[in-house]
Design a protein around this nucleic acid. Sequence first.
RNA 1: GGAAGCGUGCCGGAGCGGCCGAACGGAACAGUCUUGAAAACUGUCGUAGUUAAUAGCUACCGUGGGUUCAAAUCCCACCGCUUCCUCCA
Length: 423
Amino acid sequence: MIDLNLLRENPAAIKASQRARGASESLVDEAAAADEAWRAKLIEFENLRAEQNALSKEVSTAPKEEKGALVAKAQELGSRVKAAEAAANEASEELNTLVWKIENVVIDGVPAGGEDDFLVIREVGTKATFDFEPRDHVALGELLDIIDLERGTKISGSRFYFLKGMGARLELALMNLALDLATKADFTALITPTLVRPEVMAGTGFLGEHADEIYYLPADDLYLTGTSEVALAGYHRDEILDLSNGPIRYAGWSTCYRREAGSHGKDTRGILRVHQFNKLEMFSYIDPDQAEQEHLKLLALEEQMLQACGLAYRVIDTAAGDLGSSAARKYDSEAWVPSQNTYRELTSSSNCTTFQARRLNVRYRKEDGKTATAATLNGTLATTRWLVAILETHQQADGSVLIPEALRPYLGGAEVISPKVRG
RNA sequence: GGAAGCGUGCCGGAGCGGCCGAACGGAACAGUCUUGAAAACUGUCGUAGUUAAUAGCUACCGUGGGUUCAAAUCCCACCGCUUCCUCCA
């Protein structure tokens, strides 16, 4: 949620952000009015309660003969206090519903507009060219016997798959390379729960716009997470962190589950968009003043990883309207996918500033001893989807795939994945 | 799944329905002493809202409700933890 102080002091800044996102500006005025209403009700209630407390104290010390009258008075006051409290609570709830609808204030420089208004920051690497007819990852997966889509569907339905042999090992290699990279960069490995309680799901903001993207287990009232970000963000909920020795960084390793409810017929081929995949996610808790710098650090690590995998990619600064509600800025990197003749998102890194942490009540202690809301950031370092780009980019005429050098140590030194010779 | 017990501040740990935002101990921080450190002593020492205010007032003793003039303290529900039994990867 946004900072209430900002709403009071500079509503224009929030409005400008809402405008850039194409979101409601009048919401800001409504929230500001609700804030004032709430504070008025709160003061009313607190004054009455103070009166009641004082009267209660009187009752305890009053001589017997006066007690009856005092208690009667206190009873009458009590009902007024109750009413005032209810009114204050109601006003507070109204304020909350409005405030929660306001999205994070976009950072200066983020392009305004929608999905297509992103800014390309840079393109890196040369797109793979072939002197033969390249195969797509589905064909390669089948030929190399490393992705079994047919049986995935047989067992679990569409958008499920088996990774087999070198396919399975390649994914683990990728995840391990990412984890090693993250570890060297001061991220602590964390294997997270993938089932979480409703309040955690709601607290991280995933039950809002993404609600129908999420698997829910009614028998246990638990949600399957679509990213370890949920657990990583909830990890320090209601805590005051010690950031005096620098930011706290985690590398979350988890399987991710997504219903893909809104994407019927989109990317149905292969493993580009699936219901279950693995992901290594970076997550930082940091002093808000350092958040933008940290964002660049996450992006640099992502690029390092993409380069290690020998992929051509571009980095985009996502437009305001295409940001998640908690993100103040988002850098995506998209790898070139030869069979689709286009770039596809492999990493996504968001600076959530204090928006996410405020809702989760994650604070840190400043040098002057006071507490303040921390900033959170997240970014992708590896996912199963990467296999698509890796396989297609490094394929050779005979269908074999050259393994990027950085991954070889994790595969017992293997240099190539070759079609299986069947007997 | 069955039984019992427990959930209090950074930690440990008290707390008769009013004098409890909470004893006491430890940790931490500041100071005195010391060449320096330790020890000892003195002081500070939860979070948030409101406010010009580190004044006052208000809220918070797992969460939510209830009883009462008054609840950390009584009642109910839920969540969590521990131990025992059962069961098992």
